[in-house]
C-alpha cells in the first residue's frame, strides 16, 4: 500500500504567547495539576488511579506467560519428574545447567543425581522448558534472586524442586500454549 511522506510541523514562529514563556508554563502546570487532582480524587473515593505500585508491599499479578527462573517439577513421592535426558542442557544457550544421571529401581529408572542451575548465568529465556519432553523443568514465577554471595546463586536439585500444585498455573499454560498441530 503506498504511504505518503508527511513533513513534520516545526514550531518556528512563536506567537506572543510562546515568547512570553508564562502562558506555556501555565499550560504545563495545568496538565500536571490535572493529573494530581485525578489521582487525588481517586484516592479519596477509594479507586486508586496512580500508576506506581508500592513494591514489595503491593505486588501486581504477572501475565500467564511470565517466565521466572526455571524449577524442577516434583512427583508426589518428592522425587523429581526429570529423567536426566539432558535435552535442557543441550538447549541452554548459556550452559548454566549441569546434570549427572543416576539409575534407580523405581518404575522411572533414571533420575538426575545432580541437577544444578547456575542462576547467575541463567537468562530466563525458557528454551529449557520448550525443549523438555517430560514437563519436568518449567519456568516458575519467582524472580527475586538477590543474594550476598555468588555461591548462593548455584541452585541444587533440592532448591529447585516444586510440587505440581505450586506450579499449576505454569503447567496449565504449557499444556495449552505449546500444543501445536
Amino acid at each position: 500500500m503506498p504511504g505518503k511522506v508527511v513533513r513534520v510541523r516545526r514550531h518556528s514562529n512563536f506567537g506572543w504567547k510562546e515568547r512570553l514563556y508564562l502562558p506555556m508554563i501555565f499550560v504545563g502546570l495545568g496538565v500536571t495539576a490535572r493529573h494530581f487532582f485525578e489521582n487525588f480524587w481517586g484516592y479519596m473515593i477509594g479507586k486508586v488511579k496512580t500508576f506506581v505500585v508500592q513494591y514489595p508491599e503491593e505486588r501486581l499479578d504477572y501475565a500467564d506467560a511470565f517466565r521466572g527462573h526455571p524449577v524442577l517439577v516434583a512427583l508426589e513421592s518428592g522425587a523429581p519428574k526429570c529423567v536426566a535426558c539432558g535435552l535442557c542442557e543441550f538447549a541452554c544457550p548459556t550452559d548454566c545447567i549441569t546434570i549427572l544421571p543416576d539409575e534407580t529401581r523405581s518404575a522411572i529408572e533414571r533420575i538426575p543425581k545432580v541437577f544444578d542451575i547456575d542462576m547467575s548465568r541463567c537468562m530466563f529465556c525458557g528454551l529449557c522448558e520448550e525443549a523438555c519432553p517430560e514437563e519436568a523443568i518449567v519456568m516458575s514465577r519467582d524472580v527475586e534472586l538477590a543474594t550476598y554471595d555468588r555461591e548462593a546463586m548455584l541452585f541444587h536439585k533440592e532448591d529447585l524442586l516444586r510440587t505440581e500444585e505450586q506450579l499449576g498455573r505454569r503447567i496449565g499454560f504449557i499444556r495449552e500454549e505449546y500444543n501445536r498441530a
Binding site: M1, G3, V6
Partner: peptide
Amino acid sequence: EIDFDIPVGTTGDNYDRFLVVQE
C-alpha cells in the same frame, strides 16, 4: 498491506529528530 506514512524533517537537527520520532 498496511497503510502508514513516513514522517520527514527538513534540517536534520535535534528538534526535527524529536518530531520525526514522535510522529
